[in-house]
Write a protein that binds this DNA or RNA. Structure first.
Length: 414
DNA sequence: TCTGGGGTCCTAGGACCC
DNA sequence: TCTGGGGTCCTAGGACCC
């Protein structure tokens, strides 16, 4: 037997802020923001004043003088997000987690056990409210894209089930920027063509969309506007790249600043690669100048890298190359390192962390294998005693980053 | 609104090969 | 010496997502 397609999209409302209000009843019903220098998340009460995630704290305070900033409880976010996913998992194993607070679930095969999709969605919502204490919005539809749009329309704390017989009646009156993949630039272009609703988008010939927006985006938007995108829920997902970046205000591009920052970034990226038993062949460095324009330089190597010092050295070469191409830029505001073209790299030497190779004892030489082994031993010490148990000397002195490391961890997609 | 951090996908030109 | 066409990889930039 084959059940009719039924995709569910669950999306926790103002997630970080809702967790803070859950943990501290005094914050409930009040405009709050997680973060300080920058707003990481805003409660609905704060959003009513125009406060948004990513907004500078100073601006948020201007918009909402009574806004209360709270420090984040990052471990709680991860644990509570996982709890909600586990509730969804009670209804189906076919789950695609998009981020810490959002997931698709294919519930077509669950209907004979748990009832129609609308009932499943209602149960997920009530259990999340009762067992976890958080509001979650849910959309249900025949396709992923429509389910996601439905959950956005249902927010806050609501649910929408889109009947397959009337899905275009639901979809077409909605604004185009609700479509996944339509951001500020594309929306402006569409508005320039007189297209403001998804229905108007659907009525536009695919040829003209492809002409204006490019082949891929044009044909994708046409498919989405007619709800013809039938991609399945993808349960397993492997990252294609690992990256880290650091905004540093506006500073002179000194050798010391570059070396220290890249060391820190390479340490973050390489540690995560090794933790996944992965390594990558392509290294990309990004430099953002004082005026926020940025350039990238990349190199694809014959062999993959996951050793911290090797990565830091390659990134330094790339950054210097980028700076050499822009000699008039004296100041930089951000550095980033990314590693892509990832391959599996089994941790063969994991059990022998302190048996460094002979070449390590010879003065002046440090082989890639020896560096890798050294990195692995640092990883192990950190696993037992915490991240800060081992730090590179120059990095340890670098001072407090604008964004807590715990928050960075959450931004990763694993 | 002058802007944090980790990702994905697409485009376009050039090098190189058959 | 001049020339067609297709495929793949690499690099740089940009839009977008959470």
């Amino acid at each position: 037997m084959s059940d009719a397609p039924a995709i569910l999209h669950a999306d926790l409302d103002a997630f970080y802020a809702s967790v803070e209000q859950l943990l501290s009843p005094a914050l409930r019903g009040r405009p709050i923001a997680v973060g300080g220098g920058v707003v990481l998340a805003a409660s609905y009460e704060a959003k009513a004043f125009g406060v948004r995630g990513g907004m500078p704290g100073r601006l948020a305070r201007e918009l909402c003088p009574q806004l209360q900033f709270v420090p984040g409880h990052y471990q709680e976010y991860q644990a509570l997000g996982d709890q909600v996913i586990d509730i969804v998992r009670d209804f189906t194993p076919l789950i695609e987690r998009i981020s810490i607070d959002e997931a698709f679930a294919d519930v077509a095969g669950s209907i004979h056990l748990f009832g129609p999709p609308g009932e499943i969605a209602a149960k997920i919502r009530s259990r999340t409210r009762n067992e976890v204490g958080l509001p979650v919005s849910v959309g249900v539809a025949r396709t992923k894209h429509l389910a996601k749009i439905a959950s956005q329309v249902a927010k806050p704390d609501g649910m929408i089930v889109v009947d397959p017989a009337t899905e275009l009646e639901f979809l077409h009156p909605l604004p185009v920027d609700l479509i996944w993949g339509v951001g500020p630039v594309t929306m402006k272009r569409l508005h320039g063509m007189g297209i403001t609703t998804i229905g108007e988008l659907a009525a536009t010939p695919g040829r003209s969309l492809e002409h204006l927006l490019g082949r891929a985006i044009g044909s994708k938007l046409e498919a989405l506007a007619w709800n013809r995108d039938l991609r399945a829920v993808e349960v397993t997902h492997r990252a294609g790249s690992v990256s880290a970046q650091s905004a540093i205000g506006r500073q002179d591009a000194t050798e010391a600043l570059i070396a220290t920052t890249l060391r820190h970034l390479a340490d973050r990226v390489a540690t995560r690669l090794r933790a996944k038993n992965r390594a990558g062949r392509t290294v990309t460095a990004r430099v953002r100048f004082a005026d926020l324009r940025s350039v990238t330089r990349s190199v694809t190597l014959p062999a993959s890298v996951s050793a911290t010092s090797v990565l830091a050295g390659i990134a330094a070469d790339l950054v210097h190359s980028a700076l050499a191409d822009h000699p008039s830029e004296r100041q930089i505001s951000l550095l980033a390192i990314a590693v892509s073209h990832l391959q599996d790299e089994p941790a063969l030497q994991l059990e022998l962390p302190f048996e460094l190779g002979d070449d390590d004892r010879r003065p002046g030489t440090e082989s890639g294998a020896a560096r890798w082994t050294l990195d692995r031993s640092v990883d192990q010490v950190r696993a037992r005693f915490g991240r800060n148990a081992v730090a590179y000397a120059s990095v340890a002195l670098a001072g407090n980053p604008a964004v807590p490391d715990d928050f960075r961890e959450l931004a990763q997609k694993d």
